[in-house]
Design a protein around this nucleic acid. Structure first.
Lengths: 196, 196
DNA sequence: GTCTATAGCTGGATAGAC
DNA sequence: GTCTATCCAGCTATAGAC
């Protein structure tokens, strides 16, 4: 595998700029200038702006697989406190790639390739959460639920986690430590309804 | 109040185009052309593109106050089925202004004025839901909860409703009738955890 | 791999006639 | 209120030298 130091540098700078100002406001010229690289050179490494976003998605995928592998390996029977720890991990992950979550619907609407790739990640994640819920029920920490209900509960957890940063932004609180704290409390309340 | 037929026409056409392609992809020229109006005329009625978005927000505010007034007036003690009907109403509302929900975080990040205005609507809505939850608990349909917990439960309901369309888009299902159906089921499951 | 230079286009916004 | 004409800025993407 080639080193591609410049390519990686561009990718990280772009991620930073996107997080700060959103993809629409950041041009390839901005990215090139901030990276200390000429526009022509940028276009040597990337076909266009969408291609840069896809490059960042590669980074996300790698980081996510790494993080989730640890979770999937670790505690199979899952108690509430482990759920919360996982929630906190994902929140930090989301913060690192905040522009992506913020613009997710627009981004995948404008790039079919990205849409397909995200769908796969989405389904994998949902599947993982489903298995965690199953294990937790089997371990007797949650009330028994039908297959449909397990699926819905997992989806609810995933959705809360996926969009919590957006909710915080939209409600006027930034992404403070306090916001994450409230998120975990919310998740705890949700699960309490189903504890034995 | 002046008639401003042209202004309204531009607003509705813009709403349509934004819903179809997103705000970033739609220029003032596009809007003018689609409205059968010259670019100069468009700029007579609106200062710039953000101003058009704000105009659409005016429409949303009016429609939302109207709809919520009916809800707030009606059934104060709220059972699960009424919750669901409300959810469905909001889903349709969201669909009519889908671009706004889709791009909400980006939009308010780029326009402080809009941010402030949405914050107010957000707090009003949350307050309304809180009162509904209170009334439902007082009526004995839900388990008693502390003030904090009521607040969190209301927030969870609101968030699920606010971002459900986004979730559907992102997960690869469009906004089908089936998607709305699953949303109501999810809400029902959430509430079941707190029923007496 | 990296640069400079630039073509080609599009969009935002205004001026001024009607 | 509405139009036409237009200016200017900024961005994408490429060509060609090094």
């Amino acid at each position: 595998m080639p080193k591609q130091k410049t390519r990686d540098k561009i990718l990280l700078i772009a991620l930073d700029l996107f997080n700060q100002s959103g993809t629409a406001a950041v041009s390839t010229n901005h990215i090139a200038a901030a990276s200390g690289v000429s526009p022509g050179n940028l276009y040597y490494h990337f076909r266009n702006k969408d291609d840069i976003v896809r490059g960042i998605f590669d980074l996300m995928e790698a980081a996510s697989r790494e993080g989730f592998a640890a979770i999937a390996d670790g505690a199979q029977p899952l108690r509430a406190d482990v759920f919360e720890e996982t929630f906190r991990f994902i929140c930090q992950f989301n913060r690192r790639f905040s522009f992506f979550k913020r613009e997710l619907p627009s981004l995948i609407a404008g790039d079919p390739q990205l849409k397909e790739r995200f769908k796969i990640v989405h389904q994998e994640t949902l599947g993982l959460i489903c298995r965690l819920v199953d294990a937790t029920i089997d371990a007797g920490f949650l009330k028994p639920l039908s297959g449909r209900e397990r699926q819905l509960l997992a989806e609810m957890c995933w959705m809360l986690t996926l969009f919590w940063p957006n909710y915080l932004e939209v409600s006027g609180e930034g992404d403070s430590e306090e916001g994450i704290e409230r998120g975990t409390k919310m998740l705890r309340l949700l699960l309490r309804g189903f504890q034995v």
